[in-house]
């Protein structure tokens, strides 16, 4: 499952600069709003689902080399966060869906904890 297909299926909004999403295949998914848990649990190239939208999430994603972050519940990252994500090459996606449903949909697409 490529990031491109995930974006299409879940109707996600891309807020960072466009990339070749078809060439990115997330290794699996992870969800938590606690940065320390993400640091401990998320794996490289994972897609991370969270309600958090402040700039610290980019630092965590860059450190862990995550494939993308889906920010849920219509929370909007501010300009500083988006700019930092662009600098770090992190894909930022947003959705009005809640984390629970977002993960449920990813699961239906076959994305598993990985």
């Amino acid at each position: 499952m490529t990031l491109d297909q995930i974006i299409q299926s879940l109707n996600l909004t891309v807020v960072t600069e466009p990339q070749d999403f078809a060439s990115i295949t997330p290794s699996g998914g992870y969800t938590s709003d606690l940065l320390s848990c993400v640091m401990a649990g998320a794996k490289s190239k994972n897609i991370w689902v969270t309600i958090q939208s402040h700039a610290n999430i980019i630092a965590v994603a860059a450190l862990l080399d995550l494939a993308a972050i889906i920010i849920t519940e219509g929370a909007e990252p501010n300009q500083a966060t988006i700019q930092k994500a662009n600098e770090e090459g992190i894909v930022l996606l947003t959705t009005r869906m809640q984390s629970y449903e977002t993960v449920g949909r990813l699961w239906e697409l076959g994305v598993r904890l990985g």
């Binding site: 938590s32 649990g41 519940e73 629970y100 449903e101 904890l113």
Partner: peptide, 21 residues
């Protein structure tokens, strides 16, 4: 983990019970 749990329960038919803010 949370990801697995959301997936399993959603799959089992338990829908999201959150309302957009």
């Amino acid at each position: 983990g949370m990801f697995e749990l959301c997936g399993r329960l959603f799959q089992a038919g338990l829908k999201s019970l959150e309302s957009p803010v």
